[in-house]
Write a protein that binds this DNA or RNA. Structure first.
Length: 724
RNA sequence: GGGCUCAUAGCUCAGUUGGUUAGAGCGUUACAUUGACAUUGUAAAGGUCAGAGGUUCGACUCCUCUUGGGCCCACCA
């Protein structure tokens, strides 16, 4: 053995050995009880980041349970990441001077597919460099045909059960990216938006969006408001920038008498609250902003202006006409912006598919309350409950091509109008559910409309929200496994380990969908890890330019050291700042461990090389009091590390091992035994050292394996059993 | 507006059901060592555990408040 441990000569070679030997498959312990973890599938098009490096926790668990003799499965996969990927691709198009609008749906899809396929495999090889013992023979991708089929099946089942429905309602729509989003994908920003006090005939009302006034179909006051009661139910005549008009005054409880003047304009097509009010009072919906972000013909001479331009023009015009009483320039409000492009989202009316969440969320809440799912750290339970309890129906339609196209066909005969076309004045309607004929299947094109037998059907152009498919990942990946019986054997999975930032978007939805489709929870434990920030504690982000690539650290320090540094000194679920001193300490630890092995190799005094016996035999063999004491201490350590791992206290385990291996075993015991080495004490030293290697193996798989093989303890430490 | 979370040594962080002199890594200081260890060992300095109050025989740990960070959620015009 060399004086210094060199990870570069070791890691890649050992990983190949492991993989080729089939050690990552649960079949190596055919009699063992099942233990399973589904890897949170990284973006197929993405690169490794620290969120992925934290999956070291999963590797620790899997290696630990595998050594305990369990049939441990860690199933890898990749996600098509619909919006993320399409947006990245569109940026590339833009750099080439092209736009997605230059291509038809099929061509665009194929182009993105090719682009992703070029990059797929990249993320997988990166996961290998971290030493992750994933069973690659079971790897799945969210767009694998068998996965897509399962997702279609779920959609149909939900449709048949009334849990997926088509509705015409307001959605948050990004007119720059051309798609709607779910509630969760909206970023709220506080901005200063002037509050305009506008004269509406005899009334004055306050609004931040004067440009939407062309879509007003009512004016609301609080029913108990003494100031305005006399107007309720009456039509009032108002002067507008487009001339005189009449508008109805209604009384609605949602109006806050204290805000502004206590009068609200009702613009059902462009405000979520107004939409609800309009429903209650049967007011028509009048869309004045198009999906291109421009004012439409209802805006008269303002047609064709973008919202922001229109606001300016309308306000100027109103001021000329004396229709503005005052402007509060310092009014702050929170506004929804696109999480991708940061542009202001428009609430726009659109026909979309929604998931009725209440029946699903109730069961998901109950599963945690009943202890069928345990969340660690437990404080995340509160967030889980809070979110699920206040959940609104989930918009799953996305106007992008990269994803799973929705298996629903619209009968063209029954078509009233497409949600994307501009409404004609004669089509002004109250906000009611879409009443076109839809035929939903589990993927195959239907021959005719189920309601009117027409054969003129067209598939919905939209795709499913990526989270709709990824929320089915645990059971879908197992059901689509190339190995028969995987689902029955490994579902529910043992642990779902992921960053806490995915609690809402993913974890809670997996629980809902898992219970709905399979009748069982998708996993028995949820384990959250924290975020890795930059060395100054600031969140890593591309825009800040402070992103550190974990692969560079692996190159420099070795995968073992990177893994150990991320685990050591970091309580489960807490954020951490990337620490170079800690990385250095971890690297030195691998070197220390290596040199302990080197010492054993050099001091070989035994005739039978590196002989190892059981700890029971060892206890009988030991005569020297220091040997006896050390055997006792190692026994205690085994219990402590096992217990810490069972309780997900990875940092305790790592710290305990580090401290013991270095400062007890090396500093004291090896120093002591140096002076009295003989065949008996040598066997004791070997045996205890091997135990320590095994205990460390889940944390630092490469160096422990390399030492193990160098000292010829056996073929591979991966098939050793966990010490007792 | 609601919720979560953090504040412990110069820095980055542990501290597991409240229990003897509060720990680690890095850094600092002194000494030793060429050793199995491109180093390592031995020892030392350094903390009124953010502040105030409370519960308790006993509080870094539990409760309340204050201050200062961080994060998440939210359709008040």
């Amino acid at each position: 053995m060399d004086k210094v441990y060199s990870h570069k000569d070791v890691e890649e070679r050992i990983y190949k050995e492991w993989e080729n030997s089939g050690y990552f498959k649960p079949e190596i312990n055919p009699q063992g009880k099942p233990y399973s973890i589904i890897l949170p599938p990284p973006n197929a098009n993405g690169a490794l980041h620290f969120g992925h490096a934290m999956f070291a926790i999963e590797d620790i668990l899997v290696r630990f349970h595998r050594m305990k003799g369990e049939a441990a499965l860690w199933l890898p996969g990749t996600d098509h990441a619909g919006i993320e990927t399409q947006f990245v691709f569109e940026k590339r198009l833009k750099n080439q001077g092209k736009s997605r609008l230059d291509f038809d749906r099929e061509t665009l899809y194929k182009m993105i597919e090719e682009y992703v396929n070029e990059h797929r495999g990249g993320i997988e090889s990166q996961l290998r460099t971290l030493g992750f013992s994933l069973d690659w023979s079971r790897a799945k991708y969210t767009l694998d045909p068998d996965i897509v089929k399962l997702v279609h099946k779920t959609f149909k089942k939900m449709y048949d059960d009334g849990l997926v429905y088509r509705d015409y309602r307001l959605v948050n729509y990004c007119t720059f990216d051309g798609t709607s989003f779910s509630d969760l994908e909206i970023v709220h920003e506080e901005r200063i938006s002037p509050l305009y006090y506008i004269k509406y005939g005899p009334l004055v009302l306050a609004t931040t969006r004067p440009e939407t006034k062309f879509g007003d179909t009512g004016v609301a006051v609080h029913p108990q408001d003494k100031r305005y009661q006399k107007y309720i139910g009456r039509q009032i005549e108002i002067e507008t920038v487009l001339g005189k008009a009449k508008i109805k005054v209604i009384g609605d409880e949602s109006v806050d008498q204290k805000f502004g003047t206590g009068v609200v304009k009702i613009t059902p097509a462009h405000d979520f609250n107004d939409f609800e009010v309009a429903k209650r009072h049967n007011l028509p919906l009048k869309q004045v902003i198009g999906f291109d972000g421009k004012m439409n013909r209802f805006a008269g001479k303002f047609e064709g202006l973008y919202v922001r331009q229109a606001r300016k023009a309308v306000v100027e015009e109103m001021q000329k006409k004396g229709l503005i009483e005052k402007i509060d320039e310092n009014y702050k409000n929170r506004i929804g912006v696109c999480y991708k492009c940061k542009n202001v989202l428009q609430p726009l009316p659109l026909e979309q598919w929604f998931v009725k969440v209440k029946p699903l969320s109730q069961k998901a809440i109950q599963a945690v309350k009943d202890g069928k799912i345990k969340i660690t750290p437990s404080n995340f339970e509160k967030q889980y409950f809070l979110w699920l309890e206040n959940l609104r129906d989930w918009n799953i339609s996305r106007q992008i091509v990269w994803g799973i196209q929705i298996p629903a066909w619209k009968c063209q005969k029954s078509e009233i109008r497409s949600g994307k076309s501009e409404p004609k004045p004669s089509e002004l309607r109250t906000p009611i559910s879409d009443n076109g004929h839809w035929t939903v299947t589990d993927g195959a094109k239907p021959k005719k409309c189920l309601q009117c037998d027409s054969a003129n059907l067209e598939q919905d152009q939209d795709t499913l929200d990526t989270w709709f498919s990824s929320s089915q990942w645990p059971f879908a990946a197992l059901r689509a496994s190339p190995y028969n019986g995987d689902f029955e054997k490994f579902y529910p999975t043992s642990v779902m380990e992921t960053g806490y930032d995915l609690l809402k978007a993913w974890v809670s939805r997996m629980v809902m969908m898992g219970i709905y489709v399979t009748g069982k929870v998708p996993f028995n434990n949820v384990l959250f890890h924290g975020l890795v920030n930059d060395p100054y504690g600031k969140k890593m982000s591309k825009s800040k330019g402070n992103v550190v690539n974990p692969l560079e650290l692996v190159e420099q320090y070795g995968a073992d050291a990177v893994r150990f540094a991320l685990i050591y000194g970091n309580a489960t679920g807490n954020d951490q700042a990337l620490s170079y001193p800690k990385l250095d300490a971890a690297r030195k630890f691998t070197n220390k461990l290596w040199n302990m092995g080197r010492f054993i190799e050099m001091k070989n005094v035994s005739s039978s090389k590196y002989q190892v016996v059981s700890i029971e035999e060892l206890k009988k063999k030991a005569k020297h009091k220091n040997d006896k004491a050390m055997i006792e201490k190692v026994s205690e350590l085994i219990g402590k590390v096992t217990n810490d791992l069972d309780k997900y206290n990875f940092n305790y385990a790592a710290e305990g091992l580090y401290d013991f291996v270095w400062h007890e075993f090396a500093d004291k015991y090896i120093e002591d035994i140096k002076n009295r080495i003989n065949p008996d004490s040598y066997i004791i030293l070997n045996t205890l050292y091997l135990i320590l290697l095994k205990l460390l193996h889940p944390f630092m798989p490469f160096v422990t394996e390399e030492i193990y093989q160098r000292l010829k303890f056996g073929k591979s430490i991966m098939v050793e059993t966990w010490p007792k």
